[in-house]
């Protein structure tokens, strides 16, 4: 490891001769092995989902929530170091509160992500701090409709129809690309989100996991970010499990074909 950075990775605010900031890149490493999180932009809203890796049987199911709200209309999910994510969310809440206190209306998603991107970027510039070890997916509805963004440890953020981060991001992104985004309904997006998380879990199969799904939609939740209701959640899980089984069957039959050939 030491040979990789060759001294240029010991602090923020130091570039390597070829123009890289190693601390930021290492922060991204913290994200790469974490549980998968995805965000989907649908017709009139956003769906967020995450794969919570269960590292102890003693954890109470459903107790340790990972998706958070920044304001009534904005939700966040992140992969990486959880305390970093909490700090990030707290900043988002402060920004949303101050905006609302000044302008009365809720903060727009673009405005919020601008401020949050700036905040994350600042942690790459100073020796006394380290960058955020998270990729945060921020989604919500404002006066212009649904929006979905992802912020990286460097402070970079892009707007997406669908995005994924964490260990299973590759397969998840591949699945997201197959969907007709953003033209699917919120309910369908919830089911697809569940399916994709189950599928992405294949990359992390030796560990147990718990699914968590939230949504914010004009028609379904009246523009408020909430966890999906239990019935829909159960339906989505059922769908995910069925799809997974049928995939496995296909795989098996594929393998069978090959053998035949």
């Amino acid at each position: 490891m030491t040979s990789i950075g060759t001294g240029y990775d010991l602090a923020n605010s130091i570039f390597s001769p070829d123009g890289r900031n190693f601390q930021v890149e290492y922060a991204s490493k913290a994200v790469e092995n974490a549980g998968t999180s995805i965000g989907i932009c649908c017709k009139d809203g956003v769906v967020l989902a995450t794969e919570k890796v269960i590292n102890s049987k003693l954890l109470v199911p459903g107790k340790n929530r990972r998706i958070q709200s920044i304001d009534r209309h904005v939700g966040v999910v992140y992969s990486g170091l959880i305390p970093d994510g909490r700090h990030f969310v707290n900043r988002g809440r402060d920004e949303a509160r101050s905006f609302k206190s000044i302008y009365k209306e809720p903060i727009g998603l673009q405005g919020l992500i601008d401020r949050l991107g700036y905040f994350v970027q600042a942690y790459t510039c100073y020796n006394s701090v380290r960058p955020f070890g998270i990729n945060a997916i921020v989604g919500g509805i404002d006066s212009k409709g649904p929006h979905l963004f992802m912020v990286e440890p460097s402070g970079t953020y892009w707007g997406y129809y669908g995005t994924a981060t964490g260990k299973g991001r590759q397969s998840a992104r591949a699945e997201l690309e197959k969907l007709d985004l953003p033209n699917i309904s919120a309910k369908d997006a919830v089911k697809e989100a569940a399916r994709i998380i189950y599928l992405a879990h294949e990359d992390n199969k030796d560990k147990d996991f718990e699914l968590e799904v939230s949504w914010v939609s004009k028609s379904e939740t009246n523009g408020v970010h909430q966890f999906v209701p239990k019935e829909l959640f159960d339906e989505a899980v059922k769908y995910a499990e069925e799809e997974q089984e049928s995939d496995e069957d296909e795989d098996e039959s594929d393998e069978g074909d090959e053998e035949m050939a």
Partner: peptide, 15 residues
Amino acid sequence: QRLLDELLIEDNYDM
């Protein structure tokens, strides 16, 4: 009104 609205938003953080 503003304070109470903030209170309500904070109450809703845990969803």
